[in-house]
Design a protein around this nucleic acid. Structure first.
Lengths: 255, 255
DNA sequence: CGCTGTGAAAGACTTCACAGCA
DNA sequence: TGCTGTGAAGTCTTTCACAGCG
């Protein structure tokens, strides 16, 4: 997860810690599943397991919302679903636009999770005139020229950018100028936005790189978690010249 | 961002804090861009701006890797690119498999960021026999039956799951059994995996929900950041019955 | 003089462990 | 008795601010 430059002063947004907010959707999903199976109540232990967190954390998280549980019993599933939905602002529905209808944009348009949870895809927008009119996921694609009008007419405040990196900042600027104040960015670029606009970023290759880091460590330390590990420790430079933990520059740069 | 159940004991993986690891790909991307423009050196201030973080954080992050800068000057771009790549394990290349070639899987297969950064898509796998053979992004889709063989033959240790939620756990189990130890999960489910397997999750609707939360606050507090805010503060229940900050249960549940 | 590298302080988040209510 | 709600402790992360090197 990453929040762009101009987020709220990093502090809690009216009392609820950011880390808690980030988990509410997780709880909500688990609760919805229970609700569909008509389970009336859950304990913090059960719900935590279903959401993939530990129960102390879950109870602490819920304590920021209020006292919604019953001691000795647990939480009322329906009631909690409602409270969390309300807290997240999902009791109203949010029109969103998706800009950039390539493979990823199409995947997003088809993604069921949007429609089911307070979001409505108000429009699909692409710069390619050839796509105009063609429906994707039942929604016709419109040309970028229409962006401002679409945002204005529909009162869109959330935009999703799934364009190539090169176009992202420009699209972002136009969305913001048109009135969008929250952006979900899939393009691999840092967007700069004015104060008051939230940006969240999802970056596929970054996630993979983080996995690679851990994967590398696994093979490296087959034997011990405690050994000094010959290749890695970030010891300070010893010689005068700039020098890292191990080797020098390679002759050929890795792509 | 979220790491699945069984991550390393939450502690640093040989000295480098997890939060720092998560930012290294960001720095790497910014540095690569500078490198392509043949910029020889950057200051922490400039690089931080390009990566969207503040400079103190960046310097602290780099301090975990070693002393790679030159006081009064800045950092050598090429050198840093190499050091970070090595730290992330990107100097070797990682074969990955993508399981579930729907819209999203296809988008991932086409995503240039993979190939360019130490990752190689070794195979695309789907359960639909009708897709077998059809190439996506130039790579033929193979049937799920082949999963174990493919993972074994190619020494795949990283798997990407882009199946529907219902199939994800089963696919995950098979990947793990076949030898995969890192998983990037796009399916909206909590995966359970044995110790030693890393899971990272990317969830589109969760990101949107977090944006909605902040968006909701914006309209609510037009006037003051400091006012008590009539609708939200998580005051403890006053009456005896379970009750939240505001209203009671709605007559009709929101979808 | 400018910019890195880093102790030390501040802050955010998680975990512990148990009081207290149903 | 069983499970929630929460102070207090512990851990991780960020920020500050400046010493010290090129």
């Amino acid at each position: 997860m990453a929040t762009g430059r101009t987020h709220r002063p990093a502090t809690r947004s009216r009392g609820i810690p950011e880390a808690t907010v980030a988990r509410l959707p997780l709880y909500l999903r688990a609760l919805t599943a229970l609700s569909e199976r008509s389970v009336p109540t859950v304990s913090s232990e059960e719900l935590a397991a279903a959401a993939g967190v530990n129960s102390a954390k879950l109870r602490k998280d819920f304590s920021y919302l209020g006292s919604y549980g019953t001691r000795g019993v647990g939480y009322d599933v329906e009631y909690l679903v409602y409270q969390i939905s309300r807290e997240l602002g999902l009791t109203q529905d949010w029109p969103v636009v998706i800009v950039g209808i390539g493979n990823l944009g199409a995947a997003l348009a088809n993604y069921g999770g949007f429609a089911s949870r307070g979001f409505r895809v108000a429009a699909l927008i692409d710069a390619d005139p050839a796509m105009a009119g063609t429906p994707v996921a039942g929604i016709p694609v419109q040309h970028t020229d229409e962006l401002e009008r679409i945002v204005g007419d529909n009162g869109v405040s959330i935009g999703v950018i799934s364009t190539p990196a090169g176009a992202a900042q420009q699209v972002c600027d136009r969305l913001v100028a048109a009135g969008v104040t929250s952006i979900l960015n899939f393009a691999p670029t840092v967007l700069s936005v004015p104060d008051g606009v939230d940006v969240r970023k999802v970056d596929l290759s970054i996630e993979l790189q983080i996995l690679a880091f851990h994967e590398q460590r696994k093979s490296g330390e087959e034997t011990a978690e405690s050994s000094p590990d010959p290749a890695a420790p970030p010891v300070r430079s010893v010689t005068g010249s700039r020098k890292g933990p191990d080797g020098d520059m390679p002759a050929v740069m890795p792509a």
